[in-house]
Design a protein around this nucleic acid. Structure first.
Lengths: 321, 321
DNA sequence: TTGTCGGCCATCGGCCGACAA
DNA sequence: TTGTCGGCCGATGGCCGACAA
């Protein structure tokens, strides 16, 4: 299982199976994103998955897609594996899940205690700041909010005038970035100067995007606290490009056919979950699903929808039917 | 049909259905790329298509894919539509084709005369040059090969000293680029100076990539000759990234299922053809296929392979079984 | 014929505190 | 507390012919 890792000292490049930091992944994904636990049972909604893929390929789900009579509107699976990833180009975070459909008999098993919902670890010593025009311009550096700097950055030596230090931080791909951190100006403020513009241009940041800083503590192997960084892109007016690899129809068919085939042959299938791409959760813990169904006093089979407000006041949905 | 267009004066942005210049598309695709004609019959090879998609997603075709007993190894279709496209990010050219599987009775029809192969129009007044380290460095401009400049660029006024002019050219997305074209130095040579570095950084060109220049003549609407430009990326050591949208297994299943569904219901399906992505042609004119089969004295159903050497001495393949 | 270089100058990047929101 | 600006200086961009491959 490669859910997370800690103490990953140097750049690891084992094919595409990079072990990226779980806390950093969550810090970039946002506070409302919660991944199911490996080994537990989950409900997979082909409809919600279709909507995410359709949103990504800028395509409406239409009626060209054949029916898959063997594929129920929700599929109870065991979550065999979850790996966290970040897009090499955009740093967009996503998760890859391996789902094992369960037979009707396996579904009847009683709940394991651990299935009652242990949320994945959310980051604690972290901050994010939406970048201003001044932050991203070539004219200057990055103005660090005072509380953020004090909470997350290593303390400065105030006997120096001005107090300054070199910050070393690693991103989702375990690439190292160096910044000059200085406390100066009148009134005094924390700034990142040298190194900042390289970061902005490398990540192609614009005003409205966000910087994420995270302090993690690796207890073992004598390693000290380490600074991690990430970004969150502003939700732009969806300039999704056509895929040029496979037609969106074929993708939607493939999605359904893969799930149906896995269900029929009792084998695993793989899905990608992009928490920031669309507001649809399509893999949710079975325990949460059962609770929701019980709570709303509807029988399984009726259409319902649960709404949650996220931090950005958008909406997350669960699918059922 | 949106195969091509001419006299497209200003930037057109009709959704994603841009009419891009057919000659320019071919100039960027390379001289060996030839698209089948709309309305003719073609042979579609799911196996070759799978290999292209697998190459793009950096995945080997393995045995996880279910069999589609209804899907024959080659499918005779009518080519309903072909549109030429270019990736918004990379300028990579590709074609979208709509294929209509034919019933056994329709397949028995005799050939139409037009099906005997009218190749699509190849560009005439065009050149390409592989960019050198000096071309792509920030230190200077672009050194234009003399014959290329004389053949493709508007003639300079040699009464000026030095002779110079402003070149205006449009790319695959119909975006305008301006360059200062000057004939100077000792010995004299053609150079693109002002404007060149903007182009290099916008297209993210590196030494080894190629610049394509094309002179087209729009006869109607009183338009004069127009200069078009494009690029060809060097074939890099395949840094294909995982898709993060759909698993490669689902994509391969979707590809097969879409074709099988179209064949079963007598409806259209859509494929993308990336001529520079992989050396596999998987949609070829029926006439060419029949000729090849006849020529090599094998019966339909035997495995055969036709080899052609392309300009870059790579290999193009036809698939059959 | 054309790829690379040194020379030269204009422009931009980038660090600073002032000032105000 | 922090976003934007003018001032200032050094780094880089970018145009030129020289020279050689």
């Amino acid at each position: 299982m490669k859910l997370s890792s800690s103490g990953q000292g140097q750049q690891a490049h084992e094919g595409e199976n990079k072990c990226l930091n779980s806390e950093l992944w969550h810090a970039c994904a946002g506070p409302m994103v919660c991944l199911p636990t490996v080994g537990t049972r989950v409900v997979y909604f082909p409809q919600g998955h279709s909507e995410q893929v359709a949103a990504t390929t800028n395509k409406e789900v239409d009626t060209h897609i054949p029916n898959y009579p063997d594929l129920p509107p929700q599929l109870i699976c065991q979550l065999q594996n979850v790996t966290m990833h970040a897009d090499v180009e955009t740093d967009e975070v996503y998760a890859q899940m391996s789902l094992q459909p369960l037979t009707p008999e396996e579904q009847k098993d009683t709940f394991l205690p651990m299935e009652l919902g242990i949320p994945s670890k959310q980051p604690t010593n972290y901050f994010y700041k939406t970048l201003t025009a001044s932050d991203t311009s070539t004219h200057g550096g990055f103005s660090v909010p005072r509380r953020a700097a004090e909470k997350v950055f290593p303390p400065l030596d105030f006997s120096q005038q001005p107090p300054a230090q070199e910050l070393i931080a690693r991103d989702l791909h375990d690439i190292e970035w160096k910044f000059r951190h200085i406390f100066r100006g009148q009134p005094k403020r924390h700034l990142l100067t040298t190194g900042w513009s390289v970061f902005v241009s490398a990540k192609r940041l614009v005003a409205g995007d966000s910087f994420v800083g995270l302090l993690v503590n690796f207890c073992h192997r004598n390693e000290k606290n380490q600074l991690l960084l990430g970004i969150r892109r502003a939700t732009r007016p969806q300039t999704v490009m056509p895929s040029s690899v496979l037609s969106s129809d074929s993708m939607l068919i493939g999605l359904l056919a893969a799930a149906a085939h896995a269900a029929a042959t009792n084998s695993c299938f793989t899905v990608f979950y992009n928490p920031r791409a669309s507001p649809s959760d399509f893999v949710i813990p079975l325990s949460k699903y059962v609770k929701a169904v019980f709570h709303t006093r509807v029988s399984v089979g009726m259409r319902f929808r649960m709404l949650f407000e996220t931090e950005e006041s958008s909406v997350r949905r669960y699918y059922s039917s």
